[in-house]
Measured scan of single mutants.
Amino acid sequence: RGITCLDHENEKVNMYCVSDDQLICALCKLVGRHRDHQVASLNDR
């Protein structure tokens, strides 16, 4: 089922925000508060 995003409840987390040490979803990176932050794919970890 996967872990859902805290900010976007219908989205699954699939990225890690290095700047905030937090799991995020694609919407967080595209339009959310993490858009200018350094992120890594969970597949890279």
Rank of each mutant, 00 (worst) to 15 (best):
D44Y: 04
L30A: 15
R1G: 10
D21K: 12
G2D: 14
G32T: 03
Q38V: 11
D44V: 05
L6D: 14
S19F: 07
N43H: 11
D36G: 08
L27G: 10
K29H: 10
K12L: 10
G32L: 01
V18L: 11
N10R: 07
Y16C: 06
H34P: 01
D7V: 06
T4S: 08
H8F: 00
H34D: 01
D7S: 06
I24L: 02
S41E: 13
V18P: 11
L30D: 15
G32V: 02
D20M: 00
S41L: 07
G2K: 12
S19D: 06
A40Q: 14
Q22Y: 04
D7G: 03
C17A: 04
L27P: 05
L6E: 15
C17T: 04
V31R: 10
R35K: 12
H37D: 04
V13W: 01
V31E: 15
H8C: 03
Q38N: 08
H34E: 03
L30M: 11
G32A: 02
L23F: 13
Y16L: 08
H37G: 04
D7P: 01
C5H: 01
R35V: 10
N10Y: 05
L27V: 12
D20F: 00
C17G: 07
L30E: 14
Y16K: 15
V18R: 13
E11F: 05
L6M: 13
C28P: 02
C5S: 02
L42H: 06
V18K: 13
C17M: 02
E11S: 05
D36R: 05
L42D: 10
Y16W: 10
N14T: 13
A40P: 03
S41F: 03
L23S: 11
V39S: 13
L30Q: 14
D36I: 03
G32I: 02
A26G: 14
V39W: 05
E11K: 03
K29D: 05
N43L: 08
C28W: 00
V31I: 09
L30R: 15
C17L: 00
Q22K: 13
Q38E: 14
A40E: 13
H37Y: 02
I3S: 09
V13G: 07
A26N: 15
G2C: 02
S41G: 11
L23P: 15
D21V: 01
A26V: 06
R1E: 12
H34Q: 04
R45M: 06
V39E: 07
T4F: 11
R33F: 00
L6Y: 13
V18C: 12
C28Y: 00
R35Y: 02
